[in-house]
Design a binder for these strands. Sequence first.
RNA 1: GCGGGGGUAGCCAAGUCAGGUCAAAGGCGCCAGAUUUAGGGUCUGGUCCCGAAGGGGUUCGCAGGUUCGAAUCCUGUCCCCCGCACCA
Length: 973
Amino acid sequence: MQKATSVGTGMAKFQELDAKWQQAWRDVKLFEAEPDKRPKFYLTVAYPYVSGPMHVGHGRTYTVPDVIARYKRMRGFNVLFPMAYHFTGTPIVGAAKRVARREPEFVKVLTERYGVAESELSEFENPHHFAAHFARESDLSYRKGMEWLGYSIDWRREFTTVDPHYQKFITWQYRKLYDAGLIVKGKHPVKWCPRCGNPVTDHDLLEGEGVGIVEFTLLKYRAGEYILPAATLRPETVFGVTNLWLNPDVKYVSAQVGSERWIVSEQAVEKLRQQGYSVEEVSPIRIDFSWEVEVPLTHKHVSILPAKFVDPESATGVVGSVPSHAPYDHVALLELQMHPEALKPYGISPQAVAELKPISLIEAEGFGESPAIDVVNRMGIKNQTDPKLEEATAEVYRNEFAKGRMREWVSKYGGMPVSRAKLAVRDDMLADNEAATIYEFSAKPVVCRCNTPVTVKIVEDQWFLNYADEGWKEKARGCLARMDLVPPETRGQFAHTINWLHEWPCTRNIGMGTPAPWDPKWMIESLSDSTIYMAYYTIVHILKTIDPAKLTDEVFDYVFHGKGDAALISSTTDIPQETLEQMRREFEYWYPLDYRMSANELIPNHLTFHIFHHALIFPDRCPRGIVSFGIAVLEGEKMSSSKGNIIAINEAVRKYGADTVRLYLMSTVEPWQDLDWRTNEVEAMQRNLERFYSLAESIIVPPAAKRPSFAQPERWMLSRLQEHIRVATEALDAFETRKAAQHVFFQLMHDLRWYTKRARQPKARTHMLKRVLEVWLRLLAPFTPHICENLWERMGGSGFISAAPWPKVEEGLVDKGAELIESYLRRVLEDVGKILRVTKVKKPKRVCLYVAQDWKWQTYRIAMKRVGEGKVDLGALLREIGETLGLRLHKSDLSKFLQQTVKELRGMPSEELEILETIETDELQILLEAADFIREQLNVKEVRVFKADDAARYDPQDRARLAVPMRPAIFIE
RNA sequence: GCGGGGGUAGCCAAGUCAGGUCAAAGGCGCCAGAUUUAGGGUCUGGUCCCGAAGGGGUUCGCAGGUUCGAAUCCUGUCCCCCGCACCA
């Protein structure tokens, strides 16, 4: 059976077109960008981290800049769109390790899903090989995917972040930062696997993904020579301590910590060591519950009481009791007070326990004296093993932290919001050596892939980028203020991030990357080496021709800052002077970057770093704008590439063709919205494109007619075309790919269908369709370049459509009157259709249309004028019309009609009113001309049109009286 | 908690800044008709409810308010999503 589409087996055909045109572009180096006289447009998108295949999310991320690049090129810009690969970082190293361990699940994904041969596995133990494979080698790789999608990338500038040239560039940059005093040394807690001897990232975890590290303050309670360090998240509550809790079932030890003698749970010892405490000489100790301890800061003396809820695994196993504000403490105390016999084994006086009263030190709106007691009572919690206590604690903490204030009696901190007092108390106590710090996971367990429990380790010697530096922040703010942000809502996020960002650890001791120039045992961390590489793109293709050993700081200083003398640098480095000058010219031509594109989840780090580093290194060449993308999901579900449940974009391209995938990705949502890949919609898109292709062919094939005269349908079509050009242009200028694609594909298709139905003269039609197609192809070219190139060639367009000029709106062809007439006809057809449906008449014999009589039209026009002017005095208007028309007989008809008319006109938007006013419409003429068309559309034998007051009209039901201007009365037989 | 985004018909999603053309674009799905009639493709029409004449009713998370008029403005309220770092 013959297929309606002449694409034949459409899919195969599209793939052929893809390959053909990609080769053609390559052959003429169409996308290799060199500085010239044209205005430039330079855009980049975050280079991919090549830890796996390119999936549909990446497809969207990279198609947006390509569409924009193609659009700008057609607008006459010299466009630079480069691409590179990010190798730096731990996940690739982690993946290689997983291969080395032959983790079955991962190996399975690699071999069965990602097409890696078993025999090659050993090579994938090398992280560099792993990355290179997914960067360029694999059929699922980024390079292939991007080529198959027809991206207009200048591939000469491709590089990886571990290339020696790039490392020279990073070294240059980091020496600058170091010299500026923005690299500072410090320590910070990391997740650490004792067995691997390495920090671990979430990717390396078997269990505990997403678990955070929280900072506890250790309050130093003193008991003679001993110190009992009680861990708390709320140091400000020290003023409400009534006693200390220890768990009688726990093994406690006494340990020499620095110059102090600490008592902690046995489990805490290793933790303290990991966290940089020098712990020596540990011996078991029996807790004597008769001790009194001195509370730090307040110097009160309190007793030690037994409590089961105290967890030896959590922090130090020593806990201070603040019953007024900690539900656990309140319940534990209550239990002891109700069961004094439990105190006997410990030799504690029940009398003393009974006298313990909660001390309230925080007031919070919506709570009474003691929030902890309120909440415990409300939840009906009776004992300290009740799991609801967690929730109660969270509720009290949340409310007190957010809304609480320290009570006035609390010396020094009285009246302070809890959120501030917490830090103030902590800092004061730390300064006086009355407290220390310990880190703990926010949830347990956390287990490394090697099946070892992960601990918190304090890494000493860590190097930080000092984003806390106020001067730097100020520069970044200045840069931000000058930038165009898409979508604009992201501005607040950026501003907030600049304020909030502080020291960022910029070195790591594992993974691939560039050694820190001032301390080469460390590697520059992967986000930190990706902040200004957009500048590197401008010269990389030239740099590649130079021996990296020659790339001294002087070279980069010259190229990027114009510092020094080219001839001199040439003589010391042996780089030809012309080469140096050429690089300088390239940089000066392309920089600043016009738009940076990346995922909006990178605003809190990468994108803001990008601003910081530019503000410092290229203060006069800050990027002009940032576009932030949404994420992508699959059939409404999240993707996971480590589990292999992704749609590899390369496979999708092979299956549906590049243009189908591109248009789908661009037309469903705007770039900053979340994309949902739905297979059935992609398939529908493919059919749509095939339909478009065969429609285009059917337009191209018949020989062109000489320019015939245009009638209403032609005028309408041309006017609509202008509208689509206008909207698409505006949309693409604002990165609204969806809006643009909707107009240039779907809406234009709709209009063209209407036109083909409406067109009466075959010659005019052939001519018009060709004329529309010529524009249409150019409008679609950024989205579906392969198909458009092919059709462009077929219809004899000159050169590549990729290099053709973008269509311009021809104001002279905008014809609001023509548009009004068509929407009028549509309305008439709709009304008739509605009547047919309601009356369930299937095959009408005859349709009669009655156009409003002159007096109604005259009234209408006068009313229109008055309404357009603003206020309407119905009475005055009535008199005015009565006088003008000299009508007496239908006074009541007139007033009724006028009322309706005014109401209707008032509801009309002023724009439409204006058009109506200015355009001479002869309704009768319009309908007479369109009668044939209406007859065809309704599939009736006869359509008759009358004036409503035509005495000779055929009107058995006297419908004509219902006629109103722009709404003819209808009679159906 | 802090910061950001969002709730529109079966699903996705425009429309909200600049109130009226909005029963609300477009896509998907579904239904019907047409097609030298394959349950495929293509084309046409329909797709909140009622209606044998183009009409009426009820809708845009929920509750109020402003207005001749509210999906759009204001107030309150409920719910959902994302980020909060050392890492891509």
